[in-house]
Design a protein around this nucleic acid. Sequence first.
DNA 1: TTGAAAGCGTTACCAG
DNA 2: CTGGTAACGCTTTCAA
Lengths: 347, 347
Amino acid sequence: MSRPAAATRSVTIRDVAARARASAGTVSRVLNGAPSVKDAVRRRVEAAIHELQYVPNAQARALSSKAFHTIAAVIPTIRNLNFVIFVRALQEALARDGYTLLFSSHEFDMGLELDEVRAFLARGLDGVVLVGQEHLPQLYAALAQRHCPYVTTWTLPREQESDCVGVDNFDAAARLTRYLLDLGHREFSVVASLAPTNDRNALRLQGVKAELARAGIELADDRILEGAGSIEEGKSAIRQLAAWQRRPTAVICVNDFLAFGALLECEALGIEVPGELSIAGFGDIQFASDTRPPLTTVRMPAADIGRFAAESLLRAIARSTGAAHAPSVLKLEAPLIVRGSTGRARP
Amino acid sequence: MSRPAAATRSVTIRDVAARARASAGTVSRVLNGAPSVKDAVRRRVEAAIHELQYVPNAQARALSSKAFHTIAAVIPTIRNLNFVIFVRALQEALARDGYTLLFSSHEFDMGLELDEVRAFLARGLDGVVLVGQEHLPQLYAALAQRHCPYVTTWTLPREQESDCVGVDNFDAAARLTRYLLDLGHREFSVVASLAPTNDRNALRLQGVKAELARAGIELADDRILEGAGSIEEGKSAIRQLAAWQRRPTAVICVNDFLAFGALLECEALGIEVPGELSIAGFGDIQFASDTRPPLTTVRMPAADIGRFAAESLLRAIARSTGAAHAPSVLKLEAPLIVRGSTGRARP
DNA sequence: TTGAAAGCGTTACCAG
DNA sequence: CTGGTAACGCTTTCAA
């Protein structure tokens, strides 16, 4: 049907071989850095490659070697720039090893996620990058069936069932809570989503609860306001708690979008931040330091997660011939970034 | 070296052929929807495909057909979510036709852009999506040399040298200016970058100038403040003009990042917006409606540009066999979104 | 250390 | 309309 772009027959490995007075096999060996090539020959080949401006055909290489040199990443959403930064870091790290990254987003639809992974699998790839631990069982099944290596990212696995590069969301939430506790806060509210599909959110809520419990404070269910991740939900949460008789002095939002909304609504309602109410989020997404006041939040090392996930996956692929290894789990730091949106609890 | 993920020898077209009592060629024909296959045979083949769960190997297909079914897009930056939305829309539209999208960003480094395109070209692809018209001549040369179809996007071409899907940035800027003029503004300032590498910025500045000129107002060079696209630059611009003896009543920022910064600095300096100063931007990026006050801006139809660019490119690829066609140029609307950051000029 | 040759899974051409 | 057969460009035995 449609004709190729690079229709002009490109220079092949045989052209190089002819010019270098060597065989295609030898040129291939030079290309792949095989040690067993005499220096003189190698130089001739390299010269020929240079002179002919030869560029290996990736498709042919893949076909022949049965390796695709392709990785797929499926992220929850592109609207959270942190995930985009993550993808970009992944891509860069992968590119250094000659791998191509394919990506997609599912906007928190687990069925779509499964479809996307299946499509990628069909297309052919050497590994998959997943965000979070919560995925449909069919997804894990599909991966297992094809012996396709994968890394999970952003959260730590409950049991070490897979390679993983993430942060301890539970602990990060606990640290944030401890910080607020130390500021004298005793009345808390959390804006969180009860939907189980986002384990990052869920763990953060649990971390807050646990740390409060350690301080002898129980977070009642009615202090937990619903909100998955939009500015609107953040605003709505503030509107609700503004009507409470016993207002919290600190509200923790499980992500920065919610926190943005909360900040905005406080301003609209004339609630002083952090004077009357301290607000904190998670993510340290773009613009988090440009809110009024600047947002206190837990920074997610998006680029590092990407970079290390790439390394982890590449390692898994490299050893996929050999015996099963114990899954590697890399835990990255998620530092608390204290800015102006949190302060001492009003006495 | 590294072994494939899907190591288990997958089912090939020959397996299907055997099972359907047909030849590989026939199966291929069925796969590609060739009309010349007897219905009975086609059904047998389809049954076999289904039973064997056969999935064509994309690499082999590419190698054989010399079509890669791959498109590459190189965007300026991932930090502007509009470009990410654009990429995603591109990808979705392309996927519907079985194409895979590769992408990269160059962060406004034209040399890097060239490198990326070259790398993609080497890898093999059927088309390229470029943002803007300003690119290194070597880039155009590389594309031309390989007869690689491409679309330029976001801006309109000066001369119709290539397929293009974009908005008229000049006109959009003129419309925004006219709107401010109608509000009674006479003293303008523009935050723009003089760097020629970003033609979107440049055209917007020109559009403002032209419309002001039509109204008999000359925009002096010292009313143009330097700023490429960061919040910091926006802040700095406001700091500068705040010191002027004759302050503008309206400042147009060539993108929303600058406008965000301008808004923030006005608040910090106690400059009332829009009372004392009207502020407008371009892009309508994420959070543009969540600033205080909400930002008046020109919406860039990022998703539409992506969708239509995909269509345009696919069309170009399809006809790349035939004779040269006149380049198609699709101009999309960039509506002015009036929000609270602009108002009547103080009398 | 090197060359020859056999694939890899498709598509495309050419008979029939 | 269909089957055989030859590529496609590379990697990878297997001998030498």
